[in-house]
Design a binder for these strands. Structure first.
Lengths: 334, 334
DNA sequence: TTGAAAGCGCTAACAA
DNA sequence: TTGTTAGCGCTTTCAA
């Protein structure tokens, strides 16, 4: 009797036991897809990412996978690789009856997101905000992050600033850059010199070279993510003989696992993955009950993790229980 | 008419066009799960990995995902995280009607694999060989790899050897270690001193310390994978003041993307991902046609990639078109 | 080439 | 609590 395997059904303990043992004998297992035909639940979530090159994404996907597994959901992976056109992707995504879709690829347009949503799949855009779109989104707090980095650098005594971006026009690149630049300029300094990397390691190497070869070389570099900052770090050291934390300050964004490796000691504004994933789960679970507010545009605040790649200010340091040291400005920055 | 969306069906071009345009108007899309009920094909493949911490796995999963996407399959992700007991996992895996299952987690037992196979799901064990099991498997060529590393170190003039393993008893740790050790001993040297890391970065740090603190310190360290070798590299440099490639040689296995970062320059025995993924696809596609040979136990040979973390021998160097330099022994090692 | 009908494995609604 | 039945959206077979 199928009720044995259905959640809210009434079966006597006795029948239940019998059915269960018979099932075991026959190696019977309920077919989720047949079930999904009538319940309209597949227990499959789609996750689109453009690449795992940036270690933030494997970390994110792993945490997401573990946490969703606890509530009975699995992730179906879509690697968009940046280059794939949007249209075939929509068909691919919609072919599987996903309970929800998490779009963590900055190359995925909000038009695609809207199309999926209109097809009845709840969509969440992750780390890729289109303010003009009404698709719900979530991201680290790029604005507060950019400002905090700027304030940290100012507190460290820096006077000339550089910025290594991903792609010009990319939303996180833009938000981090403009809040950083604005803060610096509000305090009387010149706008940061900028170069873009296309989000690739090699691109970041080139961009850093461009910036450090200038006759008025910036002595502080903010990179739009750790992956790029790690490249910048190596260029500054190996090619320019600069000692990070002393001759130059280099900061990233994300706090990827390897940022804390002793050879890097990358100071960075964190995206608190635990909190972020918890919030994603909350939003998606709401969406599954058709309670997603389209106007949700969450920004999760992180912290400026202080390590060795940037000069450390005399004050504002806080030692955390997990061993990390963070920096907080005297005045809140929001 | 449903024949429009079925592959080998006969429809007139005219009806087809009409159906297609009607479908567009109604935003109709075929339901893959309903289809799978009758065709018994879900176009979903399960991939179990224990963690993304070791960069080899995200790289592997990404490539796998991209290549399988080309032939119409998507990956459903199972992160086993090492700790999960096997039984609930089986139920989870079998709930989704996976067309095949790729078990790339060394913590997954071959008993679990056999159980899934008996339930009718073709299974491929990846990088985790149980010779006593008849579940088909695939892995890098650990034996030739271990021997090649040993020969390379010998050619570099090393005389005392160390080994940093993952978990004692893990199949790849075992195979790499024993072929390396055997080769060294066959050439008249003492067996390598060993320490195990539990596959974690911190564990590798500890293991390396143990090895380098010995009064008769090994001057060559082979680590069972790059993730561990990268840790060893940092310990040797920062804590022991040893310059890799000069005072000590450190080798890894896998050739993960960051191994070539200039700050590491890790010499390593590669797992050629392109070839490996192509072979996985071939095997799985055979399995989908129920043509999987259970006796398949492929070993894919890699190359010793020469960079800066180990002394480089005077001869045997070959410059590749992609910019890498590899080392080949005078005599083949198999 | 097309229409009609059976049935894949399940849940949900209705009786008993 | 349990048996029965309709039907989820599709493919496949059989006739037309």
């Amino acid at each position: 009797m199928s009720r044995t395997f259905t959640d809210g059904a009434s079966v006597s303990a006795d029948t239940r036991k019998k059915v269960l043992s018979a099932a075991r004998a026959l190696k019977y297992r309920p077919n989720l897809f047949a079930r999904s035909l009538i319940t309209r639940r597949s227990y499959i979530l789609g996750v689109a990412i453009s690449t795992f090159d940036n270690h933030y994404y494997p970390d994110f996907v792993q945490r997401l996978s573990e946490e969703f597994a606890k509530v009975g959901y699995r992730l179906l992976l879509f690697v968009t690789h940046g280059s794939v056109g949007p249209d075939p992707l929509v068909d691919e995504l919609l072919k599987y009856r996903l309970d929800a879709l998490i779009l963590a690829s900055s190359t995925v347009s909000s038009a695609l997101a809207a199309e999926c949503r209109d097809a009845g799949v709840p969509v969440l855009m992750f780390n890729n905000i289109d303010p003009s779109s009404d698709v719900p989104s979530m991201a680290g707090d790029n604005t507060v992050g950019g400002r905090t980095v700027a304030a940290f650098l100012l507190a460290g005594g820096h006077r000339s600033f550089g910025y290594v971006g991903g792609i010009e026009g990319d939303s996180s690149t833009y938000e981090r850059e403009s809040s950083y630049g604005t803060y610096v300029m509000q305090h009387g300094f010149a706008a940061p010199v900028r170069a873009y990397s296309d989000f690739h390691f090699e691109g970041a190497v080139q961009a850093t070279r461009t910036l450090l070869k200038r006759k008025s070389r910036p002595d502080a570099l903010f990179c739009t993510n750790d992956h790029l900052a790690l490249a910048a770090l190596q260029v500054a050291q190996a090619e320019f003989g600069l000692q990070p934390g002393k001759d130059i300050s280099i900061l990233g964004f994300d706090n990827v696992p390897i940022a804390k490796w002793p050879c890097f000691g990358l100071s960075t504004y964190s995206q608190p993955l635990g909190e972020i994933v918890a919030r994603v789960i909350e939003l998606v679970c709401n969406a599954l009950d058709h309670k997603m507010q389209p106007e949700t545009h969450d920004r999760i605040r992180g912290d400026l993790i202080v390590r060795t790649s940037a000069r450390v200010p005399a004050s504002g340091l806080i030692r955390l229980a997990d061993g990390d040291t963070i920096w907080r400005p005297a005045q809140p920055l929001d």
